[in-house]
Design a protein around this nucleic acid. Structure first.
Length: 415
RNA sequence: GGCCCCAUCGUCUAGUGGUCUAGGACGUCACCUUCUCAAGGUGAAGAUCAGGGGUUCGAGUCCCCUUGGGGCUACCA
């Protein structure tokens, strides 16, 4: 029975690095029809950040990584004390200054076969030192709590970040001292930032919640994280979660540290937006914007916007003119008064207010005014939207409606 | 400093001794399409597989060294 766990400490909001570790655990568990356990490692009281635990749970829920069990270490203090005592009684540990220390034996070699890269890693015990397993405040250190819990919770595979490699010999010592069976270890290479150093809050690594509020889709984020250090042999890129689950294999995980490149995430997010059904995208944008804009108008604009946005947050800058009048014009229209008047007069008499019809009319008008199409449309675009970049004008005018279009052209004409 | 891990286009990667004068994706550039911007289509540039030694008939793929990068070295996790 495969049982894996993620063991975050509630010292901050998880970023891409922690979350990818969770994802790999999740994929591995599901692929093997095993269990996915969440264990909050809140054994360092000083570093606990309020709300972090809730954020961890929220992120897992948002991404759809449902946990089968949840444990909290601070509720299990008796357990750790009990096992620390066992070690003291068998003379493998000792007490000093209120803390309990594990004795590091000499002349031993600790080694294991790591599932990432399928390589043997070994450490000489002589370079290691005695270490604290129970702190003087009564809380265990990571090493003790981790080993005790992983054993008690029947964890079969420990899939965690690379930064734990140097601690693994300590954990092996503990397992051996208790006479417990060793789990399998898989140490994931850490994700590096563009500066090639470890992704961390200190380096401004954004929390996963930040990505959500910037308008990234969970499907895109998951897909992107999965590809950081994992290359399915099929060489597939765009995959939904069920495909990832069926393809996932620890032996396909790279040993080298990947660098986080947001450009590819942006592209992927755009891909996912383009694959989202109109009706679903409409709701997502409406909710993303705090339900403040009329959903009927959003709905009409979706076909025009979907190919033009990479993130949900790109929608408003592109489509804001549908909801309110421009308050400035990106091009000076002061020399265009005559032309705008022509447009106004032509449009006034128009009965059939459809994009195609508008298109034909405008083309004709442009040629009769002897002005290049592109120039003509640009003038009109700025007059109506205020901007040099907008969705296609004819369709936008149709959505906006005759009344508003006429009004805007009028307002754009300098006195 | 010590110990450990790592090394294929700018980035994510495919590649597990011969089919690799190294494939795909993002990004970049050009062209097509076009009312702007996108999207889409076509194409291009971009990696002497970090460097040097081996092993082998043959190495990106195995071994060693060097270099570079990263991690750990707390009564943090």
């Amino acid at each position: 029975m495969v049982r894996v766990r993620i063991a975050p400490s509630p010292t901050g909001i998880p970023h891409i690095g922690n979350t990818r570790t969770a994802l790999f655990n999740f994929l591995f568990a599901k692929h093997n029809k095993g269990k996915f356990v969440l264990r909050i490692e809140d054994t360092d009281q000083k570093r606990i950040v309020k709300g972090a635990k809730e954020a961890i749970v929220e992120i897992l829920e948002w991404l759809g990584m449902d946990v089968d069990e949840m444990h909290i270490q601070s509720e299990r203090l008796d357990e750790y004390k009990k096992y620390a005592k066992v070690l003291v009684e068998s003379d493998l540990a000792f007490e000093e200054e209120g803390a309990i220390w594990m004795k590091m034996p000499k002349g031993k070699i600790f080694s294991w076969q790591d599932k990432i890269g399928n390589k043997k890693i070994s450490f000489k015990s002589d370079v290691l030192e005695d270490f604290v397993i129970l702190k003087s405040d009564g809380f265990p250190t990571y090493h003790l709590a981790n080993v005790v819990d992983d054993h008690l919770m029947n964890i079969s595979h420990i899939i965690r970040g690379d930064e734990w490699i140097s601690s693994t010999p300590k954990h092996i010592l503990l397992y051996e001292s208790f006479g417990w069976k060793l789990p399998l270890f898989a140490h994931l290479p850490v994700i590096l930032g563009p500066d090639k150093t470890k992704l961390s809050k200190r380096h401004g690594a954004k929390s996963v919640l930040d990505y959500r509020s910037e308008g990234y889709l969970k499907e895109a984020l998951i897909n992107f994280m999965a590809l950081l250090g994992w290359g399915p042999s099929a060489n597939k890129e765009l995959m939904d979660i069920s495909e990832m689950i069926s393809l996932f294999d620890l032996s396909d995980v790279n040993s080298a540290s990947p660098i986080f490149d947001i450009k590819k995430l942006d592209w992927m997010n755009g891909e996912y937006i383009r694959r989202t059904q109109n009706s679903k995208l409409k709701t997502q944008i409406w909710e993303y914007l705090g339900k403040k804009y009329p959903i009927q108008i959003i709905e009409k604009t979706i076909p025009l916007a979907r190919d033009r946005i990479k993130k949900l947050s790109d929608y408003l800058p592109l489509c804001e003119f549908f909801f309110k009048e421009p308050n400035k014009y990106e091009i000076d229209l002061s020399q265009k008064k005559d032309m705008l008047r022509h447009v106004l007069n032509t449009l006034k008499g128009l009965r059939n207010w459809k994009g195609v019809v508008l298109g034909e009319k405008m083309q004709k008008l442009a040629s009769s005014l002897k002005i290049r199409n592109s120039e003509f449309f640009m003038m009109l675009r700025v007059a109506i939207t205020g901007k040099k970049i907008s969705p296609p004008l004819n369709e936008s005018m149709e959505i906006l409606g005759k009344e508003k279009v006429l009004e805007r052209i009028k307002n754009a004409m300098p006195l």
